[in-house]
C-alpha cells in the first residue's frame, strides 16, 4: 500500500514535470525568425543604403536600427561595433507607407507588409474583429529587412 502511495505521488509529480517541460519547449516570440531569415530582429545597421526620406533619395547612407525603429540615419552614424551589419548597396529604405482605404479579409493583411505598408485604415469592418486584428500586430516583426524594403512597425 505504501508503494502504491509512493507510485501515485511520483506519477503526479512526473505528470507535472512533463506538463511544464512541454510548455518550456513551445516557441516564444523572442525566438521567432525574420520571414526572410538571416537578419536578426531588434538592433542592426544597414550600411551604404539608399534612403528615401519622403522627398529625396539619399545615397550611401547608413541606418542604425535600435530595438525596432531607426535610431540614427546619415553618413557614418557610428553604430556600435557589436551590431550586425547588412550591406545596403543596391537597396532602398523608406518609411512605412500608410494605406488610408483598405477592406481587409482573409490573408490580405499579409500583403501589406510585403509592399511596405505598415499602417492601414480599414473601412466597414465588423468592430468585433478589431480586437483580433489589434492583437495581430504582435505577429509583425518589429523590424524587417528583406533586401528590398525595410519596415519598422509603429
Amino acid at each position: 500500500m505504501q508503494n502504491l502511495k509512493r507510485s501515485s505521488l511520483s506519477g503526479f509529480g512526473a505528470g507535472i514535470v512533463v506538463f511544464i517541460g512541454i510548455i518550456l519547449t513551445l516557441p516564444v516570440h523572442s525566438t521567432l525568425q525574420c520571414p526572410t531569415g538571416g537578419v536578426s530582429q531588434g538592433s542592426f545597421a544597414v550600411i551604404d543604403v539608399t534612403v528615401l526620406d519622403g522627398e529625396v533619395f539619399r545615397q550611401w547612407w547608413d541606418v542604425w536600427i535600435a530595438n525596432g525603429p531607426a535610431w540614427q540615419v546619415g553618413h557614418n552614424p557610428d553604430p556600435s561595433e557589436n551590431l550586425p551589419r547588412l550591406d545596403g548597396r543596391d537597396h532602398t529604405l523608406f518609411p512605412g507607407l500608410i494605406d488610408a482605404h483598405v477592406h481587409t479579409f482573409g490573408t490580405t493583411l499579409n500583403d501589406a507588409s510585403r509592399f511596405g505598408v505598415t499602417t492601414i485604415l480599414d473601412r466597414f469592418t465588423n468592430p468585433a474583429l478589431g480586437a483580433i486584428k489589434r492583437s495581430a500586430r504582435q505577429y509583425v516583426p518589429t523590424s524587417h529587412f528583406d533586401g528590398h524594403t525595410h519596415i519598422t512597425s509603429r
Binding site: 481587409t104 482573409g106 490573408t107 483580433i132 486584428k133 495581430a136 505577429y139
Partner: peptide, 12 residues
C-alpha cells in the same frame, strides 16, 4: 484556417 496569419485565428 480562414483567418490567415494576419488574423491569428489559430491563436484565438
Amino acid at each position: 484556417n480562414f483567418g490567415g496569419t494576419s488574423m491569428p485565428m489559430q491563436t484565438y
